[in-house]
């Protein structure tokens, strides 16, 4: 069987190994710990590195060191740990190193709780560290995508020499589903030429300091050019029954799964509902959203947060049609009934 019943968190590691990831540096935190546990089990079997670091700060800096060799490497955590990693992520972006960071979101702020939430959108999508940088962000909504998008994240990271996030929520991490591995080709790990390998022909410099303001500005402009290319080429999305939709529901991760059921239920009740699901949160599929804002009468964003993605949707919509919002927090997952009820009221 090339299919396996697997938790999303495990699927991440299987995808990472197939993607040629050679090193995992982590620190345990619920609901992301299975990622570290799976890495601890599988990585050494494949001659690859697993280190449980003393903190998330250390683990992201180990990633910096390994990524500096031009190899594929990764780390994973949840909100409190991602907050600690932000310094390192800024350095990684500034030094133009590729790596994959998985965030399995839990309730916040502070210690919050370990139930699923989507409150890390701002710190991940907007770049929670200092400086003018961006990270591509993939938002899986199934165990299959935890594998596939992790695999893809390594490609994107390497293509642009940039940190890339896989942003999941506790549910997507903890949920078991069938995962099909037949389609992924195992990537043979290699060290890219620009990396520091400790050899005569790799005396390269990995660095984010530019003392001269003009040089630093030029460096920043180069980064922005790169982000523009990413915006042009990397946006991914999925739509469901949007062709004739009056109301387009918008959500990512576990929320998008609930919204899909809401769309079906709403259609049964005679409401022309559709679903737009961003697969990349940055870059956001603006062209599609622009198309939809002309064909639909209303957008309805649902998140397990205080309303973070909705801000970006509103920026795209520019007031052309109403953008409504419904959010749950604290680990509560919106129910189909509750969202259906609001959808009916809005229609």
């Amino acid at each position: 069987m090339s299919k396996e019943l697997l938790k999303g968190n495990y699927a991440v590691i299987k995808g990472a190994l197939l993607a040629g990831c050679v090193a995992y540096f982590g620190y345990p935190i619920t609901p992301a710990s299975e990622i570290a546990e799976a890495a601890a089990y599988y990585f050494p079997l494949a001659g690859r590195t697993f280190v449980q670091a003393e903190s998330e700060i250390a683990s992201i800096n180990m990633v910096y060191g390994a990524a500096g060799a031009g190899v594929r490497c990764m780390t994973a955590s949840s909100g409190p740990g991602i907050s600690l990693k932000q310094e390192g992520i800024s350095y990684i972006a500034g030094s133009e190193l590729p790596c994959v960071i998985v965030d399995v979101m839990r309730g916040g702020p502070g210690l919050g709780n370990i139930a699923p939430e989507q409150g890390d959108y701002h710190q991940v999508v907007k770049g929670g560290g200092h400086g003018n940088y961006k990270c591509a962000v993939y938002a899986p909504n199934s165990a299959q995508e935890m594998c596939d998008l992790t695999y893809k994240a390594f490609e994107t990271a390497e293509k642009y020499r940039n940190p890339v996030f896989v942003l999941a929520d506790g549910f997507i991490g903890q949920m078991m589903e069938q995962v099909e591995f037949g389609k992924l080709d195992p990537v043979t790990p290699k060290k890219l030429d620009w990396g520091v390998h400790g050899t005569a022909d790799s005396k390269n410099l990995i660095n984010s300091i530019y003392l001269d303001p003009d040089e630093l500005e030029a460096h920043n402009r180069k980064l922005q050019e790169k982000y523009k290319k990413m915006e042009e080429n990397e946006a991914m999305f999925e739509t469901y029954k949007t062709e004739d939709a009056d109301i387009v529901l918008i959500g990512y991760g576990i929320t998008s799964r609930i919204l899909r059921t809401v769309v079906d239920e709403a259609r049964k009740a005679g409401i022309k509902a559709g679903l737009f699901r961003p697969i990349t949160l940055w870059p956001l599929a603006k062209d599609e959203l622009n198309k939809l804002k002309n064909s639909a009468k209303k957008f309805f964003v649902v998140e397990m947060s205080n309303g973070q993605l909705v801000e970006d949707i509103r920026l795209v919509v520019e007031g052309k049609i109403p953008v409504e919002f419904h959010g749950r927090m604290g680990g509560n997952v919106p129910t189909v009934d509750e969202v259906l009820e609001i959808t009916k009221k809005l229609s």
């Binding site: 670091a53 180990m62 060191g65 390994a66 990524a67 400790g198």
Partner: peptide
């Protein structure tokens, strides 16, 4: 963070 960076580098090199 130098010791952590050194760790990451040494482990893959």
């Amino acid at each position: 963070r130098a010791p952590a960076v050194a760790t990451g580098s040494k482990r893959v090199n």
